[in-house]
Amino acid sequence: MLWTSIKRVIKAGFVNFYRDGFVSLASVLIMTMTLFVIGGVLFLSATLSASLEEIKSKVDVNVYFQTSTSEEEVLALANALRTLPEVKEVDYISREQALGNFKKRHENDELTLQALQELPDNPLGSVLNIRAKEPSQYEGIASFLKGDIALGGGKKPIIDEVNYYDNKVAIDNLSNIIKATERIGSILALVLVIISISIALNTIRLAIYISREEISVMRLVGASNTYIRGPFVVSGVLYGVSAALLTLALFYPLTYYLGDSTENFFSGLNLFRYYLAHFGEFSLVIAGSGIVLGALSSFLAVRRYLNV
């Protein structure tokens, strides 16, 4: 008996979806727009976080050592830095490498290279490149360098210069911009999603409003609430599924078209490849939102007309 009822409700949902073709089409299109916005927000946040990640990775702090500092001392400091939780990575550049880099940078500059040859010894000290996990953490790392080891415990200082203090303003600005971008981005996304969800909700309410007479007739014929509501919820799920399929299909040519330009513009994130790589999660989120939105809004909308 229960199985027969379920079968009948599902069948009625499909039949109504098909017979009220125009209403279904309108609901599916509106819902497609909603899901499109949700998908767009996903792409936007992926692009944003990839770009920010890229910018963050370009920021680092360089520690220049005195030429007299031994390699052991530098490596000891590098190891000490690696134990700090804020530090992401530490690159060691030896004096010889530093000289090589310098020569390479000035290979067209005869004068500088000549001047370099006049010197008795390699004038460059070794360098540590430090990357923090967050730009805001450089301050802590810099004060660690300044305070503890750099002073060498009363001995001769081993560090010549830490360029954090030169770049402080730029780094601070950047970390503020990143924070603000993330905050504005998520507020904007939330607003867009809320607006489009409420439009979809209202469209389905209108679709059911058209059927209010039918609902009262069903009540008079002796239909239980579940039996009236069931087919509407099934139709709602069908709206969601159709809209999700449409949305996923729309993103395919769209991301293909945008793929190359986004790769050049934003830090190497190719939207098309990203879409294909995350297609599973993507279709889950889109179809899931569609089904929940369709079923829930139908369920709520019918309730109004059940009080006959």
């Binding site: 009948r8 109504n16 017979r19 009220d20 007479e213 039918e214 007739v217 069903m218 008079l220 014929v221 002796g222 239909a223 239980s224 039996y227």
Partner: peptide, 18 residues
């Protein structure tokens, strides 16, 4: 007060299903 998107047969079948 018939159900407009159902045929004559389905209108009656609906009452029986209920």
């Amino acid at each position: 007060r018939l159900l407009t998107n159902k045929t004559a047969f389905e209108n009656i079948a609906f009452a029986m299903e209920m």
